[in-house]
Design a protein around this nucleic acid. Structure first.
Lengths: 225, 225
DNA sequence: TAAATATTTCACAAAATGTTCACTTTTGTG
DNA sequence: CACAAAAGTGAACATTTTGTGAAATATTTA
């Protein structure tokens, strides 16, 4: 059954959620703050995260953003009444649903069920995590790239960009799309920034730069089987 | 922009929702009860339905079920506090989200935005994006065209023009329509520019130029199955 | 806090593409 | 068949786009 990560600084909340979730047959892991959640997510995989917005150390939004850089895990946010502005904001960060505190555990479980159902149907089209194109190996969750067997050292953006390109290989991607997906919806800079990173990425890939194709007037594409 | 159907027997609710939705740039249609909503949906297409649970004539759940028999339109339900059982039920009927009355219009709009975003990305992945006409293959998402198995290299405008023609195959398209859709509403040049690009596109397509038909006095058409 | 890394912006040249225009060819019509 | 209007075409010229090195900022690390 599904494995849920519950992140809240209040122990009572965690306890209530755990109780109901376990009753429904889910496996539960707890974390006390955003930082802890991020670390747990680096090492483990969860099917869903239920996370409070307000927490010490690292708040829910920032944690969500951070986690989504490497893993595509659905998130349900818990927030206190009156945080409406944050709400409007949150849906764009990749929060799948909201539940307002104080919440009814039954309602929360209904939403958990709904979100898991959605993400399951997404996951059916799940993508592999490791790719090899001739002498270029790309290990997404391990965040490593090998060029002819030798580990390539790249900057964070180069990794993110390459991984996004590879996950969407053979699909034409505009600069705007790349900015939105790799840099985030909140990047307001120049779209030529993409070009510069493509340049650096190409250098890092050496002979395998050939996989990154320029689509004039449009953007770029990772072209390979 | 998206077209929303608001279904509620209370005129005041409809009014408030309409006001906020129109402010956000959505087009709004109203219905007073489930029966009316079902009839409207048979004749028109909406991008989203916001519907009350409790209504005379035909309640929200039944209406939702009925509509989903023929169309896959996302639904946000409005319900009064304390209808938890119904909630649990609703997610299984195909309700995409719930908002409890009395609701904050801002919150409702945030959910509208989120639901539309989800349904849009569903729709995008469902759309066929690859076409084959005899020896002519057109891969829109990959931005590639093959003529007898060999990749054709074309200019950006040629791709855009071909993709638009193919997506609207068997439909007569005037030069003005093409200019507006392919060049953009802000192009103020000569109509005959289209001719030149059609010429180049035909050359790129080789023997499959035959699919691009001239409609004298009118424009062009991509004619194929 | 300084040093080291990363990221973003910028400017410029080279290359590719887009637009217009004049001329030719085709088509429809009386 | 002659005519006029519409469409096809090649080439000149204008514009846009991209790759790139380097400078300016920002961020992370020691």
């Amino acid at each position: 059954m599904a494995h849920i990560l519950v992140v809240d600084d209040e122990m009572n909340i965690r306890k209530v959620v755990r109780e109901y979730a376990e009753f429904e047959g889910y496996e539960v892991t707890e974390a006390e703050n955003g930082m802890e959640a991020v670390n747990l997510c680096h090492e483990n995989t969860y099917d869903l995260i239920i996370m409070d917005v307000m927490m010490p150390r690292l708040d829910g939004y920032s944690a969500c953003k951070e986690i989504h850089k490497t893993k595509q895990i659905p998130v349900i946010m818990l927030s206190a009444r009156g945080e409406e502005y944050d709400k409007l904001f949150g849906f764009e960060i990749g929060v799948d649903d909201y539940v307002v505190k104080p919440f009814s555990p039954k309602e929360l479980m209904a939403r958990v069920k709904a979100v898991l159902k959605r993400s399951k149907s997404d996951a059916d089209s799940a993508k592999p995590d490791r790719y090899a194109f001739e002498g270029l190996e790309v290990d997404i969750s391990g965040r490593e790239v090998y060029v002819n067997g030798q580990k390539a050292s790249m900057t964070p953006k180069e990794y993110d960009l390459l991984f996004y390109l590879v996950r969407n290989k053979n699909i034409a991607l505009s600069r705007d799309k790349l900015l939105e997906e790799v840099w985030g919806y909140d990047f307001f800079g120049d779209d030529r920034t993409v070009d510069t990173h493509i340049k650096m990425l190409r250098n890092s890939l050496g002979e395998y730069r050939k996989f990154i194709v320029t689509l004039r007037g449009m953007g770029y594409k990772f072209e390979a089987n």
